[in-house]
Design a protein around this nucleic acid. Structure first.
Length: 344
DNA sequence: TCACAGTCAATATC
DNA sequence: GATATTGACTGTGA
């Protein structure tokens, strides 16, 4: 937490909103500990990042400072708006029907509110990181990459093995420079500003590609997804605010943007495969990802990744896939930040 | 009331 | 330690 948090004065009241687990099952506090486990040696780096996770929110204050979008993920329905800019309250993932609603802190008959749990913000996938977050995110990232030397070197290139578009996403990472004008990057080393521009074009293309591959419908789809257009998307990224465009669109678009409802069709199998690949790539334990990004348990994530149901057959479960999809859409840097922040 | 979907938590397995 | 499996629970809709 570092500095970033301070920047945002926002606190999410909402925390409460999402607090309860979707089903309100009586979970015990223990549950929240999930996060804590995840720290394999391999993931040491990640672990460091995620580490804080264990204590959800005692220091909520911190999180409060964070960009709302980030911190609250789960609670806020993830929808946080992700915005690179702090100022723009954008959009959001539509409240996940399930989660968001359920998370509403209304007095549940069930005792299970695990405050801790729910509060944990899981990353909002939607992303929303503001520039400031860069610092935080980056540092950890470096560690992560440590595991993957190759990848690192390849920052310029698609980090991910995924053939389709993830690579592009990764590239986006380079955009970091954009995000944070160098300011705090010192520690982050890795992201060399250099590649960013050169990759801009690539990014745009790749992202577009990715979106398509993941989403069942054609172009129309994209627009539906969170209201983002591949093209606009790109531009913004180049500027370091990739989300801003989308957000704007969402905002303007109509309400829902956020998403949750807008996506018509996501290729769940593809998303599952990509998520699996990304988790492996960065040595991110399922438990961590599930908890922080999806607000779900490790078992649930494992099942979803291994046995993804067709989008058409999903109901409330779509929300979980949307979150995964959203996460994939984020630049690498943001993804990591989300994991980390959520943990904090 | 019942069936189903989604999830959790415990446990087994790798 | 991480992941996969599974039984049980809860919410929703017919």
């Amino acid at each position: 937490m570092e500095n970033i948090g301070n920047l945002h004065g926002v606190s999410h009241s909402q925390t409460g909103d999402l607090m309860s687990s979707p089903h309100g099952r009586p979970s015990s506090a223990s549950h929240r500990n999930l996060v804590s486990h995840g720290r394999p040696a391999m993931v040491s780096s990640m672990a460091s990042i995620l580490e804080g996770a264990g204590e959800y929110r005692a220091d909520h204050a911190l999180s409060g400072h964070l960009h709302p979008a980030m911190t609250m993920s789960c609670e806020s329905g993830m929808s946080l708006s992700s915005t690179y800019t702090t100022l723009t309250p954008l959009q959001h993932l539509p409240p996940i029907s399930t989660v968001s609603e359920k998370f509403h802190h209304h007095p549940h008959p069930h005792p299970h509110h695990h405050p801790a749990h729910q509060r944990l913000a899981t990353g909002n996938v939607s992303g929303s990181f503001t520039l400031m977050r860069d610092d935080r995110g980056l540092a950890p990232m470096g560690n992560l990459y440590g595991h993957y030397p190759k990848d690192m070197s390849g920052m310029g290139q698609p980090l991910s093995p995924l053939s389709n578009g993830l690579g592009s996403l990764h590239n986006t990472q380079q955009t970091l420079s954009a995000y944070g004008p160098g300011a705090h990057l010192s520690n982050d080393k890795m992201l060399s500003p250099g590649g960013f521009e050169s990759h801009a074009a690539m990014l745009s293309r790749s992202e577009e590609h990715l979106a398509r591959s993941l989403v069942g419908h054609g172009p129309g789809m994209m627009s539906n997804l969170n209201g983002m257009h591949p093209h606009s998307h790109l531009h913004s990224q180049a500027n370091g605010s990739m989300l801003s465009d989308r957000e704007r669109q969402n905002v303007g678009g109509g309400g829902q943007g956020g998403g949750s409802g807008q996506v018509e069709d996501i290729n769940t199998k593809e998303v599952a495969q990509r998520i699996t690949a990304e988790l492996k790539r960065y040595s991110i334990p399922q438990a961590i990802f599930a908890q922080r990004i999806l607000c779900r348990s490790q078992g649930t994530l494992s099942d979803l990744l291994r046995n993804p149901k067709p989008w058409s057959k999903l109901k409330s479960g779509r929300e979980t896939f949307r979150r995964m999809w959203k996460w994939l859409q984020e630049p690498e840097f943001q993804r990591m930040s989300a994991l980390r922040l959520a943990g904090e």
